[in-house]
């Protein structure tokens, strides 16, 4: 359905899937632009939040694709300035989380999302195996995944001297429980 109506979305649209998954109705946005005005990274986004919402309101496949391929959705810091100031109380970062997930699922994620994703995956892997974040392991893992081997090589020795780098991971006792937790959430597939 390419009618352009932004009240009832067809099942094929990203707007419909967003509503099903998050409960957020895109029609609530009336394009005041307050989200983009307060967003600390809007100036670096190809599509600021209000434009993402406007495009999705059309329910057109080419616009949905444009949103899923955008770099901007990966720059959202989830600082919640937008949702706090939104006169319609639209939970914009929650929608951004869902759109990123869809971009990954449909293999449309922007190439520059690679490093950001590498970081989050390394982060979660660290927790899955040890229960707590192992910062040294996280950074090492991130370097391998992102191939930014020289990133922050100058910072680590300074942190070590200040006692801020624990060289060994903190292992929780119930590590099997953590594996189980991951298997029954993100690992459900």
């Amino acid at each position: 359905m390419n009618s352009g109506s932004h009240h009832d979305h067809h099942e094929d649209t990203l707007a419909w899937r967003i509503q099903q998954a998050t409960g957020v109705k895109l029609a609530h946005c009336y394009q005041c632009g307050k989200c983009a005005a307060g967003c600390p990274v809007a100036d670096q986004m190809d599509l600021p939040p209000c434009q993402v919402f406007r495009m999705l309101q059309y329910g057109l496949p080419e616009y949905d694709k444009r949103v899923l391929e955008s770099e901007g959705i990966w720059l959202c810091l989830a600082c919640e300035t937008c949702s706090t100031r939104c006169p319609q109380e639209v939970e914009i970062p929650k929608v951004m989380d869902f759109i990123r997930g869809e971009a990954l699922r449909l293999n449309l994620a922007h190439p520059r999302s690679r490093d950001i994703l590498a970081f989050h995956r390394a982060f979660l892997d660290s927790i899955e195996y040890t229960g707590r974040l192992y910062e040294v392991g996280l950074v090492a893992d991130y370097k391998v995944r992102s191939r930014h081997f020289l990133k922050d090589v100058m910072l680590a020795p300074k942190m070590y001297v200040k006692g801020k780098l624990g060289l060994l991971p903190h292992l929780i006792k119930n590590r099997r429980g953590m594996k189980h937790l991951f298997k029954h959430t993100i690992g459900k597939g």
Binding site: A78, H120, L124
Partner: peptide, 17 residues
Amino acid sequence: DWNCCGASSAHILNHEL
């Protein structure tokens, strides 16, 4: 025996996690 809260990473990749 507390674990990590997932911080700024878990919600990016999986809501249930």
